[in-house]
Simulated assay, not measured.
Amino acid sequence: MTEEALGEVLDDMESRPGSATALLRTIVAIFLRELGGWISVAHLLELLDALDISDARARTAVARVKKKGLLIAETRDGGAGYRLADQAVPMLARGDRRVYNPRNMGADDRWYLISFTIPEERRAQRHQLRKRLEWIGCGLVSPALWIAPAFLADEIEEILRRVGVRDDCTTFVAERPIVTGDPRETVAAWWDLDAIRAHHDTFLRLHARDVPPPAGLGDREAFAIYIRAIDTWRIVPYIDPGLHPSLLPDDWPGSDTSRLLEDLRETYSAPATEYVGSVTGRRIDNPGRAARVRAAARTA
């Protein structure tokens, strides 16, 4: 896969939560590795049908993720299907960490600052850099200076390399910013906390009603609830950098959404996995548990 194509794979945030493309990507992220990295066309369409996505919309979504470089058409045992692109696996692994083991700053954690000088004739690169830094939770101090928790350093460095601007940037590790006045006001100027809060609030509004589950809920319905919940949630741990509570409003909803996510996983992950196994004819381990193990291993 070319650098340009891999860049397309990384543009996961462009898929609007709830869209056919976003739901497809969520299915792929949660289950495809546990299915050996391949799924038949028929089985994939059946899973999308459980989400009320018609064949026509499903095929359009598949075409989009193929173009992005996430899936590759591949025939196995005479059956048409799709294989997970090898180069997409690291992106999904990072997603595991974000979704299943999100990091939060401690009171004494360090910060990472990114300063850059990119000339106007390369403004497209400058735009890509700003977009990607915002997508992973960096705050804007000034037009050419960004700040983030230091635990995002590796992801930031990868972005600088992928966008092709590493030589234009200087990065610093800092103990803590020294500001006048209330640090919460400064943080509110660096991050769009209202926009981040809106994603938390949307997750709570759409999915708090799913716990406890309705009586007599079947595996197919549990699968649909689980996929939609994770699809709504997946934006939150990217744009929310996990700042220390002392830097956030007292009514910040982060702990509420984290508890809800855990309740949803405990309630729906297993029956959702059973449904995928029944559709594909394969017994698979609970992918939520497997992803948590992978995420814990990478952060240990």
Rank of each mutant, 00 (worst) to 15 (best):
L92N: 07
E274R: 15
C169E: 02
D77S: 14
R234T: 05
D11K: 14
L24I: 01
I235K: 02
W135D: 12
T257Y: 11
A29N: 08
I72C: 07
V179P: 06
A85R: 11
F203T: 01
T267V: 06
V99G: 02
A297V: 10
A208R: 15
R57C: 08
M91H: 14
R184G: 02
A153F: 04
R197V: 03
L204K: 02
A58E: 03
R294I: 09
V165H: 01
E121K: 11
H43C: 11
V9T: 10
A20I: 05
D194P: 00
D108Y: 12
R298C: 05
T273W: 00
G242L: 00
T186K: 08
G18V: 03
E155Y: 06
R76E: 14
V173C: 10
M1Q: 08
S115G: 12
L113W: 05
D192Y: 00
N101F: 10
A22N: 06
W252V: 06
G218W: 02
S54R: 07
V141E: 09
A58W: 03
P149E: 09
S142V: 10
L247A: 04
L133A: 00
R110Q: 12
R132P: 02
L152K: 15
G78F: 10
L193Q: 08
R110I: 03
I27G: 04
Q128Y: 01
Y112L: 14
T273E: 02
R228Y: 03
A189G: 14
P214C: 07
G7L: 08
R228I: 00
N104L: 15
G18K: 04
A148W: 06
L247E: 07
D285M: 13
S278T: 09
